[in-house]
């Protein structure tokens, strides 16, 4: 069983977002970076499946060197080795093309990643990778079990869930409760230091988009407080003032 887990390196969920360089770059000053929370679920399940099947798990990140602490963390959690494609990806298409390139050189049975990154929230990389490799992709996956060469997948659908059985190889976008997030232990942290982290250069991909500019939303107005003993007046206000009823 060969498993590839793709991780993003993103600002912590509580990070205050601001921009620099004329709103063309994220201001990384004072921002704590983490493995994307959805990718963390994918990684946790990947490690469990690897331990069950005695396979090997590679973690892949398309991005710059400042992500290496997060890549080491993934190694500490249980990945056997890591690949970093040394690039500053401009869009989902570029990222997917890099992942597909790496995957096409190694026949992975399972390619796992988060359902979406929490910086761009696009949720399209797994689909792009699947199509580029010509294999099925499913997302968002809440439960994943393997039985030989078949996967049983529980996928969230609008207002419910569906269970699918599909042969490997597969590309899956993961979310909770596929596994519990794992915290590296001391031994993991020690062994991670010597696990291989290979840095490779990106393959060239046609630019689908141009560099972007950023904006912050307009600040929110004040909250109108309604005394608890007049709670029922809220409904009228919602109807006549806010006009949402």
């Amino acid at each position: 069983m060969k498993i590839l887990v793709c991780i993003t390196n993103v600002p912590d969920t509580t990070a205050k977002i601001s921009f620099t360089d004329n709103d063309t770059k994220l201001n990384k000053n004072g921002v704590q970076f983490i493995i994307g929370p959805y990718d963390d679920y994918a990684l946790a399940r990947g490690v469990e499946l690897k331990e069950q099947s005695g396979g090997c798990l590679t973690v892949l990140h398309v991005g710059e060197a400042d992500a290496e602490p997060q890549i080491r963390k993934a190694l500490a959690i249980g990945a056997d080795d890591a690949i970093r494609v040394n690039a500053d990806p401009q869009d989902s298409y570029f990222t997917a093309a890099q992942i597909a390139h790496i995957a096409s050189q190694n026949s992975y049975d399972l390619i796992l990643m988060g359902r979406e990154s929490i910086d761009y929230n696009s949720g399209v990389v797994h689909g792009l990778v699947g199509e580029m490799l010509g294999i099925p992709s499913y997302s968002p996956v809440m439960k994943l079990d393997l039985d030989g060469n078949n996967a049983t997948i529980t996928r969230e659908i609008d207002g419910g869930k569906e269970v699918l059985k599909a042969p490997l190889p597969l590309v899956l976008g993961c979310q909770e409760p596929i596994a519990e997030w794992k915290i590296p232990n001391m031994r993991g942290i020690m062994t991670a230091r010597t696990k291989p982290l290979n840095v490779v250069e990106p393959v060239s991909v046609d630019d689908m988009t141009a560099p972007q500019t950023y904006q912050l939303p307009a600040p929110k107005g004040a909250c109108k407080m309604i005394p608890a003993d007049q709670a029922e007046t809220l409904i009228k206000l919602l109807q006549t003032e806010a006009k949402v009823l």
Binding site: S92, Y93, S122, G123, V124, H126, G127
Partner: peptide
């Protein structure tokens, strides 16, 4: 998102979600 992604890869199209 899933359909759009696979279609974009097939059509070599830029995708923004």
């Amino acid at each position: 998102d899933a359909m759009a992604a696979r279609a974009a890869a097939k059509l070599k199209a830029g995708i923004v979600s």
